[in-house]
Design a binder for these strands. Structure first.
Length: 297
DNA sequence: AACAAACGCAACCGCCCAGGA
DNA sequence: TTCCTGGGCGGTTGCGTTTGT
C-alpha cells in the first residue's frame, strides 16, 4: 500500500502564489502561528497543499527574511560552510540569518559554483580543479574502487580512505576522510611525497597559515552546531577505531559519517591535537560540535 | 524590433526520518 | 515492533526576465 498523498491534489492550486493567497497565509499564521501544515490550508481557506504553504511561508513570506543580494561576506561564508558540510543547505542556512536553504541552494547553483570554477576550484570538492580532474582520472570515476583497490592501495593512501557503503559491499573513497586529510595540514614534507605541485603546496601552506593565525586574513566565527548528540559521542570514538578496520553496518556507518563531520569540523582533531577522540573543546555541553580553534589560540 | 539563448528563482516532487499510535 | 503521518530536506522543473544577436 502506497502512502497517501499529503493533500488532495485534484482540488489544489499549483504554480505561482497570488497576493490574495499570500495575505491569507500571512493572516492565518499571524493569528494562529505555525502549526499543522496539513490542516492549515483548509483552516486558512487556501486551495493549496500544506507543503506548498510551508514552502511559501518559509522561503518567501516569513517576516525575518533578508531580501536582496548576497554580500561578499555571505558568499565566503557559504563557500566555507559548504566545504565543511556539503549540500546541507538547511545547516548552511542556519548560519546565515534571514537566508533560506532554498535561496542559498539557488544562489550556490547560479553564482557561487561559477565563481569557484573561475577561481580554478572544484565546487564539489573545494579542491583545485586540476587536482580533482587528476583524481578522477586516477580512480576512473565511473567504476567505484573495489576491495582489490582497497588491498592494493599504495601506502601513501591510508586504508582509512576506504569505507564500505551500507547499501552494497562496494568500496568507495571516503571523501570526507580525503578532504580531512587534505585539510589536515600535514607536515610539508608529507605533501612533497604526494606529488603536489608548488601551487597546491602554497595553497595548503596558506590554509595552514590561516588556521595558525586566524587573525591573519579573514576570520570567521563558525559556531557550527552539528547534530552529534552526547549520547552518540561514545559511539563516535568507536567509529574512529572502526575506520582502521572497515566493518560497518548501517548504524555504524551513520556514526562514522557523524564522526567524519565532527572531525571535519573539529579543527583540533585536524591539527593533530587529539589522537583518536574528538576533542572535548569542540563539543558544546549539549553534545553538539562546533568549529573551534585549538585551546592555545 | 524580433527572436533565441541564457539566466535566475519560486515552486514542486519524491524521498527520508522522527515520533506517535 | 510495526505502521502511519507530518515535517523537512535536497534535487529538479518550469516560467518569467534579461541579454545577446
Amino acid at each position: 500500500m502506497g502512502r497517501s498523498p499529503c493533500c488532495e491534489k485534484a482540488h489544489t492550486n499549483k504554480g505561482a502564489w497570488t497576493k490574495e493567497e499570500d495575505q491569507r497565509l500571512i493572516d492565518y499564521i499571524r493569528a494562529h502561528g505555525e502549526g499543522c501544515w496539513r490542516s492549515l490550508p483548509k483552516a486558512a481557506g487556501l486551495l493549496r497543499c500544506g507543503k506548498s504553504c510551508r514552502l511559501r511561508w518559509i522561503n518567501y513570506l516569513r517576516p525575518d527574511l533578508k531580501r536582496g543580494n548576497f554580500t561578499e561576506e555571505e558568499d565566503e561564508l557559504i563557500i566555507k560552510l559548504h566545504s565543511l558540510l556539503g549540500n546541507k543547505w538547511s545547516l548552511i542556512a542556519g548560519r546565515l540569518p534571514g537566508r533560506t536553504d532554498n535561496e542559498i541552494k539557488n544562489y550556490w547553483n547560479t553564482h557561487i559554483k561559477r565563481k569557484l570554477i573561475s577561481r580554478g576550484i572544484d565546487p564539489q570538492t573545494h579542491r583545485p580543479l586540476k587536482e580533482t580532474a587528476a583524481m578522477a582520472t586516477a580512480t576512473n570515476t565511473i567504476a567505484a574502487p573495489t576491495e582489490l583497490d582497497f588491498r592494493n592501495a599504495p601506502k601513501s593512501v591510508p586504508k582509512s580512505n576506504f569505507i564500505k557503503t551500507p547499501s552494497s559491499l562496494e568500496f568507495k573513497y571516503n571523501e570526507f576522510q580525503l578532504k580531512s586529510n587534505a585539510d589536515s595540514l600535514e607536515e610539508p614534507n608529507c605533501t612533497a611525497s604526494s606529488g603536489m605541485t608548488t601551487d597546491e603546496e602554497q595553497q595548503q601552506l596558506h590554509k595552514k597559515k590561516q588556521y595558525d593565525n586566524p587573525s591573519d586574513g579573514e576570520e570567521l566565527n563558525l559556531e557550527l552546531s552539528i547534530g552529534i548528540s552526547s549520547a552518540d559521542s561514545s559511539r563516535v570514538s568507536s567509529a574512529n577505531s572502526a575506520e582502521s578496520k572497515p566493518k560497518l553496518g548501517n548504524n555504524n556507518f551513520q556514526f562514522l559519517e557523524q564522526a567524519m563531520v565532527a572531525k571535519a569540523v573539529c579543527l583540533c582533531w585536524q591539527l593533530g591535537f587529539q589522537t583518536s577522540e574528538i576533542c572535548s573543546n569542540c563539543q558544546n555541553p549539549n553534545g553538539f560540535y562546533r568549529f573551534c580553534r585549538p585551546l592555545d589560540s
